[in-house]
Simulated assay, not measured.
Amino acid sequence: MKILPRLYPLFLGIVMFNFIRLTTDLAKNEAFWANSMRFHLQALAVTVFMCYVFDYESRYFLDKVKPRLNLSPAAEYFLTFLKLFVMVNLLIFVGDHIGLLHLGNTWVDYVIADVIYIPLLFMYYILLRSGKMEKELQNRILQLEKIKVDQLEMELKFLRFQYHPHFLFNALNTVYFQIDEKNEAPRRTIEMLSDLLRYQLYGGSQKVPVQKEIDYLRTYMNMQKLRMSERLRLDVSFSPSLCEQPVYPLLFLPLVENAFKYVGGDYRIDCRMTDEAGKILFEITNSLPPLPPSPSGKKGIGLENLKRRLELLYPEKHSLVIKKEPEQYSVKLMIEIDAL
């Protein structure tokens, strides 16, 4: 099936040349393909060559050039007609002067070639264009079908696992009331854990005020401090002007998680979030242990997932700079936000 399209210009060239011969030979009451057979075969070869050149140029134009130019159909057809007029007449002129073509009545032959070759080549271009549009339409339909299937799979997964969060919250609630009221520390830990899980599970995928993200990060950091060494020096600063700016949830959490996971050495974590000219700037730095941890064979997916989410949610409206030095690891995230 892939070989057949390569033969289309050959078939077109043969048909076009025989139309020329029918028009000129029968009009002169001469036999079909009369006179020199060598000149006829040369002219046929030139015609087929022209068809292959036009086929290649048209496919390249449709694939590479047209999408960048964003032409209207009228402008596209006019440009194609102009290219055909120049190509056909230039090829006849060059072929005649180098002896490949033999023109009996020069101007009449030019007119006949234009009247026959240009419409047929133009129709061929329209067929190529229609084929490409049909292929693009089929690809879009397949993509839409794939999206629908993916959405159904996600919905099924959500329904399948919907029970588990309720079970977890009920279990945490049970443990909470089993702890004596005098033991405030574990009860407070369970409360913080419940708040974190509730925000992650039911926060949704729509934008939220950045203040909710800040509250969530504070809760997460406070819970992490409970299990960390007293040596940990945590310096956190959130700009007071950060309040109602809309952001997608859980974009900063992976960076904070990494900082607590890999902190070592001086046990220092510095975290800053500010806003500047319609942008949210988030920076977090953690010290590293003198010797890197031994590889476990597993690669974390948190940062990769974050990069993918940023590409989908903030295309060309974010930057993520990660810098690893011998003694510290720093990340800077910038997000352009929309006004309320």
Rank of each mutant, 00 (worst) to 15 (best):
L90Y: 06
Y267P: 05
L288G: 01
E257S: 01
I20M: 12
R38V: 15
L44N: 09
P290V: 04
L226S: 11
T219C: 12
A27F: 03
L320N: 04
P249L: 12
L201T: 13
Y77N: 11
G131C: 02
R309S: 11
M154V: 09
V236P: 00
K207R: 04
F252Q: 01
S237V: 06
L320P: 03
V115C: 13
F238K: 02
G13S: 04
L306N: 06
V247S: 08
G300T: 13
F32D: 00
Q200G: 07
P209A: 05
G104K: 09
F54M: 07
V210A: 14
S36R: 01
L22D: 01
I126T: 06
A339Q: 13
I284S: 04
I322F: 07
K132D: 11
R308C: 03
L12R: 01
P165L: 01
I126G: 00
P165N: 02
I179A: 09
E145I: 08
Y267K: 07
L12M: 15
K64D: 08
Y262Q: 08
V108C: 05
A27Y: 12
S330K: 11
Y262N: 07
N139L: 05
K212D: 15
M221I: 15
D215P: 05
L320Q: 08
S237D: 08
Y216Q: 11
V88F: 07
G203P: 10
Q178F: 12
V88Y: 07
A43S: 06
S72E: 01
Y248T: 10
E184Q: 12
E76W: 07
L44Q: 12
E325V: 02
Y163E: 11
E181Q: 14
L142R: 00
V210I: 15
E304N: 12
F167R: 06
L226R: 14
P67Q: 03
K28L: 07
D25K: 10
P9K: 01
M273G: 09
F32M: 00
F11S: 14
S36W: 02
I98C: 10
T23K: 01
T80Q: 13
E276Q: 14
R272L: 07
I141N: 12
L71G: 05
M228V: 05
L10Q: 05
K324T: 13
L120V: 10
L26A: 00
L44Y: 08
L288F: 05
R187Y: 02
R231Q: 14
H166Y: 15
F19E: 07
G265A: 01
V46M: 14
G203N: 03
D235K: 09
E230L: 00
L120R: 09
V53N: 05
L10V: 07
R21L: 02
M16L: 10
Q211A: 14
M123K: 05
Q138Y: 03
Q178E: 14
L253R: 00
R198A: 14
L41F: 13
D109L: 04
L201N: 06
E283T: 14
W33L: 03
F49Y: 05
L217S: 05
L313H: 10
